[in-house]
Write a protein that binds this DNA or RNA. Structure first.
Lengths: 342, 342
DNA sequence: CCTTTAGATTTACACGCGTAAATAAATTAT
DNA sequence: ATAATTTATTTACGCGTGTAAATCTAAAGG
C-alpha cells in the first residue's frame, strides 16, 4: 500500500497518469478517454486519494458547488424538498450546500453572503417571500446563477418553478362545494408567504366562479409558528358557535393542524358526513397530515416535478451557452388528496 | 469608493495595514490590537472586502468549519436541534456545515467522507446508532475531533452528550402508574436508535421497581417512518380489544403520533380521566406533540443544555492544549410535560 | 528619560492545484 | 500503411492566501 498520497503530484507518479490529465478528470470524469478513466478510478480506489478541496476550487473558473437555501428547515415540508433537491444535485455530479434562513430575512441575506464567498456554480433559492430583502436578492442573483422555487419574487433569478395555487385551490373549493357546505378560507391577515396571497385570490375567484359568497377568516399572528397561530385563533373562533357545521379551507396544512387541535379542544368533531360538526381542509400535503385526527384532506404539490425541473434548469444555466434568455416560469398542478377531515 | 478590491494584497495597500496582519485578523480578530482591529473593520465596511475562502483555507492548519451531521433532517426533532447547534457554532465564530444522513448508514459514511475533504476543525455527530458503520465512524473520529450527541456509540469521539433515558422513562412510568393503569411499552421490535434500547431497559426496571409487571408491545417495521409504523401496527393492536382501557407509553413521540391516529380510526378516545378508553404518552416533546388530538403527554429533552455542552466541549477540544483526556460523557435529565393524552 | 515588550511590517517562500502551450503518443479515418 | 485527429504529457506559470524570521515601531512601565 505504501505511504499516504497527499498531493495530485504524488498521485500522478504512483498512478502513471500525468497531473494535468488527473486535473481534467477530477473536473469532469467524462472528459478523458474511457481507458484512462478506468485506470484513474482504480488508482483512486487503491491509494484512497482525493484532491484537496480548497486548492482545487481556488483557481477553477466554476466550482462544483450548488447552494440550496430554504426559508425554514424546521418545517418538514421544506426539509422534504431540500432532501429531494440534494439528491438530484448529487446525482448530477455537484455537491449541495444546504442553508436555512430560519424564517429571518437577515439570515437569508447572510446565507447568500456566505454562499457568495464559496463561489457556487449556482444557487437554488426558496425565498422567504414578502419578508425578503428584495434588493439584496436581486443583487445576488446578478452575480451568481439563481433559480427560485416554491415562492416567486419578481425579477429575481433566471427561473422560477412552483405550484399552481390557482388550479389547486380551485380544485379544492370545487370539491368542497360539491360535497357539503361551501368553504370559508382560514388564513393569516398578513401572511409572510407570497403563496398565501395567491391562495387567497384563488379562493375568492373559485368561489365567485361557482356563484358563492367568499368568506375570509383572517386571523392575527406573525412568524412561522403556524400551528400555534391556527390553534390559538381557532379556539377563539370556535367559542363563537356560528362557525359550527362549517367547512374551513386553510391556507396551508400547518394552520390546519393547529385549527384541528383547537376544534378538538372545543369538542367539535371534524370530518365529512352527517355526524360531524366541521370539515377542515389544508394545502401542501405536509408529512404529518396523514396522521392527524382525523387525517387531513389536502392538496399535494408536485414536488418531484418542481425539484427535477429546478435542478435541470440550473444545470442548463451552468452549462449555459444560452446567453440572454427569457426568465422562465412554470407552475405545476397540485393533486387533491381526499382523506377524512373533509 | 474606487474599484473593487479582490485580494488581500490590494486590501492591504488601501487599508494601510500589512498583509500578514490582515491574515492574522481574519484568522482571529482578537489576535490584533484593538486600534488596528477597528481600522481593519472600518476598511472592510468601506471596501466590502472578504478574503477568498478557498485560498484562505488551503494552508490553514485549522479551518473555521465545524461539521454537523444529524441522522435525519426530515425529522423536526433533529431539525430543531440542528438549528440550535448552528446558532451556537456561528456565535463561536465558526461556520457550521449541516449534513443529514437521511437514515442511511452509507450516507452517514459519505457525509463524513465529504467532511474530511473540507478539513473541519471538528465535527458534531448524532450517529444513526445501530445502523452506523462503527468502524468507519471510529476511523473518522481518530482523524478529526468528534463530539457525539443524541446517540452514543462506544469508543467513537472524545465526548458524548445526551439524555438520561433511565431518569426520564422512570419519571414517566412513575407518573403514569400513580394516575391510572400502569403503562405498557410500545416500541419497534428491532429499533434502529440505540436510545430505544435504553428506554426499553429503563421501562422494565422502572416497572419492577414499582413491583409491577412490565409488558412490551413490540411491533414490526423498519426504517425511519415511525408514524406509519405506529399507525399500521396500532390498527392491528386496537382490533384486539384487550388493549382497551390501557395506558401505552411509546418509545418516542413519532410512534405515539401514529398510534394516536390509529386509536382515532378505531374509535377509541384517548385521554386521562374516566370517560376515556386509552392513555397514550410519548417521549421527546416533538414539535407537533403539542397539537395532536388530544395533545400528547411526553418528556422534553433538555436540548439547550445538550447543545451548549456539545459545542463548548468541541471548542475546548479544538483549542485543545488538553492532550490525552478521558472521553467525557454526560446525560441530561428530561422534564415531564403533562398534557391531555395521559 | 530609557528600557522592555507587545505588536506591526518587510521579505520571502510554500501550498496544491488550474490552466495554457507545445509536443508526443495513441487512436481513427482514409 | 499513411494521414488526420483525438488524447495525453511535458513544462511552466499563476492563484490568493498562510506563515516564518528578522526587523522595526509604538505603547507601557519604571
Amino acid at each position: 500500500m505504501g505511504r499516504k498520497i497527499n498531493t495530485m503530484e504524488e498521485f500522478a507518479s504512483v498512478s502513471g497518469i500525468s497531473r494535468p490529465t488527473l486535473s481534467k478528470f477530477f473536473n469532469d470524469a467524462q472528459s478523458v478517454k474511457k481507458s484512462t478513466r478506468l485506470k484513474i478510478e482504480q488508482a483512486i480506489e487503491k491509494y484512497d486519494y482525493r484532491p484537496n478541496f480548497y486548492a482545487m476550487n481556488q483557481n477553477r473558473r466554476k466550482t462544483k458547488n450548488i447552494g440550496l437555501v430554504v426559508p425554514n428547515l424546521t418545517d418538514p415540508f421544506f426539509a422534504g424538498i431540500a432532501r429531494k433537491l440534494e439528491e438530484l444535485i448529487v446525482l448530477s455530479g455537484y455537491n449541495p450546500l444546504l442553508l436555512s434562513s430560519h424564517g429571518g430575512p437577515e439570515l437569508e441575506v447572510a446565507n447568500l453572503d456566505s454562499l457568495r464567498s464559496i463561489k457556487p456554480a449556482g444557487v437554488l433559492l426558496a425565498p422567504l417571500g414578502r419578508a425578503s430583502n428584495v434588493k439584496k436578492l436581486k443583487d445576488f442573483s446578478q452575480l451568481v446563477p439563481t433559480v427560485l422555487f416554491d415562492a416567486n419574487v419578481d425579477g429575481v433569478g433566471e427561473a422560477f418553478f412552483g405550484s399552481d395555487n390557482h388550479q389547486s385551490i380551485g380544485l379544492m373549493v370545487d370539491y368542497l362545494a360539491r360535497t357539503g357546505e361551501p368553504p370559508k378560507f382560514f388564513e393569516m391577515k398578513d401572511p409572510i408567504n407570497p403563496n398565501a396571497y395567491k391562495r387567497r385570490a384563488a379562493y375568492i375567484s373559485a368561489m365567485e366562479k361557482l356563484g358563492l359568497e367568499p368568506e375570509l377568516l383572517q386571523v392575527n399572528g406573525d412568524g412561522w409558528n403556524f400551528e400555534e397561530i391556527g390553534f390559538t385563533s381557532g379556539r377563539q373562533i370556535f367559542q363563537n358557535s356560528t362557525h359550527r357545521r362549517a367547512t374551513i379551507l386553510c391556507s396551508n396544512d400547518r394552520l390546519a393542524i393547529g385549527l384541528m387541535s383547537a376544534a378538538y379542544e372545543s369538542g367539535l368533531k371534524v370530518g365529512h358526513g352527517a355526524e360531524f360538526d366541521l370539515r377542515i381542509a389544508g394545502h401542501d400535503d405536509h408529512p404529518f397530515s396523514r396522521y392527524t385526527c382525523p387525517s387531513l384532506t389536502t392538496i399535494s404539490q408536485d414536488y418531484d416535478a418542481i425539484g427535477e425541473r429546478s435542478v435541470s434548469e440550473m444545470l442548463k444555466i451552468i452549462d449555459g451557452a444560452n446567453g440572454i434568455t427569457e426568465r422562465t416560469e412554470k407552475l405545476f398542478e397540485g393533486r387533491l388528496v381526499m382523506r377524512s377531515s373533509a
